[in-house]
Amino acid sequence: MTLAIVGMGFMGATHLKAAAGIPNLKLAVVSRDDKKRKGDLSSVGGNLTGSDNQVDFSAVRTFSSFPEMLLDPEVDAVDLCLPTALHESFTIEALRAGKHVLVEKPMGLDRAACDRMIEEAQKADRVLMAAQVLRFFPAYASLKQWVESGDSGTIRTATLRRRCAAPGWGPWLKDKAQSGGGVFDLLIHDIDMALYLFGAPVSVTATGYENLEKQIDVLVGQLYYPGFTVNISGGWHHEGYPFSMEFTVVGDNGTMEYHVRDTHPSLFQAGTPVSEVAPDGSIDGYQAEISYFLECARKNEQPVKCLPVDSARSVALALLLLESRTRHGEKLLCQI
């Protein structure tokens, strides 16, 4: 199978590095940048993982344009690592060309765009999946198993946080017309994780502040479920602020906590020494995500672990929280 990664910014380089470790996968790259097509990724930056400055592209098919790549019958699937505003049009074009599509998060700028993408995938009988990579990170997979198995007992509260400096790379991120905004782009991970773990809330509230000139775009949100509340917070802070993601989930049978600096989550239980929760055979989350998508594409089966309709609901919930923020914390019913 041949996978074409479209866009060689930070996420494209991250996906390239992960995909290079997948056995029996042929790679292609689409970039308008001559240097990047030659494997020079020295201009790429990011907040989570770096990329090697020079990459050997001798065995990689390279294309200077998206339409050129779509005409190549050897390309089976595309991995779209582009500004959010381009997701809908590029996804639909790829699906109509008979390609399976992995599209970076957020899936689209609004629910309507996501629904149109899903409809096209159904018409084309191709696999569509949004890259909600947190579902594949080992620490969050351990949390999912703990909650879903019932080992947690009844959930009493949960907190999901994610913060970083306003990005110095990818200037499109600071353009709301292209990205939907920093909080939307960043916290979509935690919003999706809340839906993955607990389903849709009954209602939401959110407060926060946005001033992109001062490098501030923050949100503190509450998702109200019957009997418990999920807190989601974070966003962009000032230059130099380190990337951070974490969770704390409290159930009757214990508290599971994780910070990105930790190797594994910790489980705290009454009368028991704290223990690490290490998943079996865990691999890099990006590699796991791409491998799962490719397996679904090979079988032409729906990605049940990360359905596109779930990603569309995450977009809708993110926008609802932002609406509550603009209304200074007004409680809004969640109908997504």
Rank of each mutant, 00 (worst) to 15 (best):
G45N: 11
S31W: 11
C306D: 15
G153I: 00
R135E: 05
T154P: 08
A206K: 13
G7N: 03
A270C: 08
R96N: 15
D76G: 14
K123I: 04
G329N: 01
G46V: 01
E213C: 04
L187R: 01
Y209E: 09
T205H: 12
V249Q: 00
S291A: 15
R111C: 13
L27S: 08
R161I: 10
S64E: 05
I232S: 04
A18Q: 13
A270E: 09
A18H: 11
L332E: 03
P308S: 02
P308H: 02
A97P: 08
G21I: 01
G199N: 01
T207V: 11
R298V: 13
A141W: 10
V147M: 07
A19D: 02
L41K: 04
D125P: 05
L16G: 04
R163D: 09
D175V: 08
S291E: 08
R261K: 09
V260T: 13
L195Y: 09
R313D: 13
T263Q: 02
H328K: 10
F137L: 11
A77F: 05
H237W: 13
I336C: 05
Y209N: 03
K35T: 05
S142Y: 06
L160M: 14
P265M: 03
L223M: 00
Q54V: 10
A166Y: 02
S266K: 06
G7A: 09
R126Y: 00
R261P: 03
P106S: 09
D190P: 00
Q222L: 14
T326S: 15
D76Q: 15
T2F: 12
D252T: 03
E68F: 11
D280T: 14
S43D: 11
E120T: 08
K105S: 01
D284G: 15
